[in-house]
């Protein structure tokens, strides 16, 4: 269990760094979505299913949707 959690944490850190570095903002949004998704799984592993549900529904679904709309309406590439 601890090994799985460790791998997930590493993946989460990697995608968080990727979200900050991507020049294509749509990729950055998807990377931050992965951060939220892994956070939801980690909350579940830490026996906090209530928080996991909120994180999955708000962090992974709604925030990603709103960011995608915002990027689509503005500029997609960062200089």
């Amino acid at each position: 269990m601890e090994i799985i959690a460790g791998i997930l944490v590493l993946l989460m850190i990697a995608s968080a760094i990727a979200a900050a570095l991507f020049k294509d903002l749509m990729n950055a949004v998807i990377a931050s979505c992965i951060v939220s998704l892994i956070a939801a799984v980690l909350f579940y592993l830490l026996q906090a299913p209530d928080v996991a549900m909120a994180e999955a529904a708000i962090g992974a679904a709604l925030v990603t949707g709103i960011f995608v709309i915002a990027v689509k309406r503005t500029k997609r590439f960062e200089e």
């Binding site: 299913p49 209530d50 996991a52 549900m53 909120a54 529904a57 708000i58 679904a61 709604l62």
Partner: peptide
Amino acid sequence: PGGGFQGGAV
């Protein structure tokens, strides 16, 4: 587990 906030978000 769950409730108003989570269900509303879903």
